[in-house]
């Protein structure tokens, strides 16, 4: 298998706090690799080490078989989580600056800048000062600056944070085109399940600096079983623990846990089992305030693995 990024026992300690704990990853060339986890899970720290901005406390990072410290600069393009732009430069000037910094030949640079501006719907704003762009435009320029030199590996750290649905769709299509048309390897960190599910070929779920699972979105969902999720809000949420104790003895139910004020019940063909679930609850004196049924998602995988929802 052709792995372009590999981490071996990667660990980062910050004054006794283990932000990343013996992380072992193998990222294939030409895939979109989702790095999924809540805020504070260690995603950005791991990414910072993988791109060479942060020294690991221990462990090893190999880029195409070469240690990170020895790779040619420009192999990796990074789109940071925050907007990192020069307010008083125009979009084109910003791209030209970064192109020069990566030693992109002038003729290629011009072509590439125009291509990126067009693909990210910024062509009309080419000569607009960054400070005058909307939030969505700034985020797209943020991405363009990471791609000006056509890096082999592209790291996108929470790229759709704060984007409106329209800009998010533009971004997702562009990320897919990076893989499908340019053959780039994309490492995508996100805490948006939908984003990870739609874009990633494989997903690593991390929390508290540890790798919990690494697989395709489909396999991850299968891992916790086929089925649906029933979410129930009781009239008296303080009774949730008692309700869990009652429901977990039912054969018809795969699992039940308490998430915040809700009961989260996973069951195959949940709709057909709703009457018996409701009856059981009523029999034991629990009054239902609200109820909803939805399909199994990645978030349910995360809940299964961590016992909590993604922390915002």
């Amino acid at each position: 298998m052709d792995y372009i990024v590999e981490t071996r026992e990667l660990t980062k300690d910050f004054d006794g706090l283990k932000a990343v704990d013996r992380l072992n990853l193998k990222i294939k060339k030409g895939e979109v690799f989702g790095f999924l986890g809540p805020n504070g899970a260690g995603k950005t720290t791991s990414i910072s080490m993988i791109v060479g901005l942060l020294l690991p406390s221990s462990g090893q990072i190999l880029i195409d078989g070469v240690e990170i410290q020895k790779i040619k600069k420009g192999t990796i393009g990074v789109c940071p989580q925050d907007l990192v732009l020069w307010d008083h430069l125009t979009c084109m000037e910003s791209l030209k600056l970064m192109g020069d910094m990566y030693e992109v030949p002038n003729n290629i640079l011009k072509e590439r800048a125009n291509y990126l501006l067009k693909e990210l719907f910024l062509l009309e704003k080419a000569n607009t000062l960054t400070i005058n762009l909307s939030g969505g435009m700034k985020r797209r320029l943020n991405l363009a600056l990471a791609l000006i030199h056509s890096p082999e590996i592209i790291v996108l750290d929470e790229p759709s944070e704060g984007l409106d649905p329209q800009s998010r769709r533009v971004l997702w299509n562009f990320i897919k085109s990076l893989r499908d048309e340019e053959g780039k390897t994309v490492i995508l960190t996100t805490h948006l399940m939908d984003e990870a599910d739609r874009l990633s070929d494989r997903i690593a779920i991390v929390d508290h600096g540890k790798l919990l699972r690494l697989d395709t979105p489909e396999n991850l969902k299968k891992e916790i079983g086929e089925g649906d999720v029933v979410e129930i809000l009781l009239n008296d949420p303080t009774e949730n623990d008692n309700a869990v104790n009652v429901l977990k003895n039912m054969e018809e139910i795969e699992s039940v846990i308490k998430i915040n004020s809700l009961l989260d019940i996973r069951a195959l063909d949940a709709v057909s089992k709703l009457p018996i679930i409701m009856k059981t609850l009523e029999t034991h004196g629990f009054s239902v305030n609200d109820l909803s049924v939805r399909q199994n998602t990645l978030e349910d995988v995360f809940i299964e693995l961590t016992g909590t929802r993604l922390r915002e």
Partner: peptide, 13 residues
């Protein structure tokens, strides 16, 4: 502070 130096730091500058 704004992170632009990090951007430049990743380049060949």
């Amino acid at each position: 502070e704004t992170g632009t130096l990090t951007r430049l730091k990743l380049s060949r500058m």
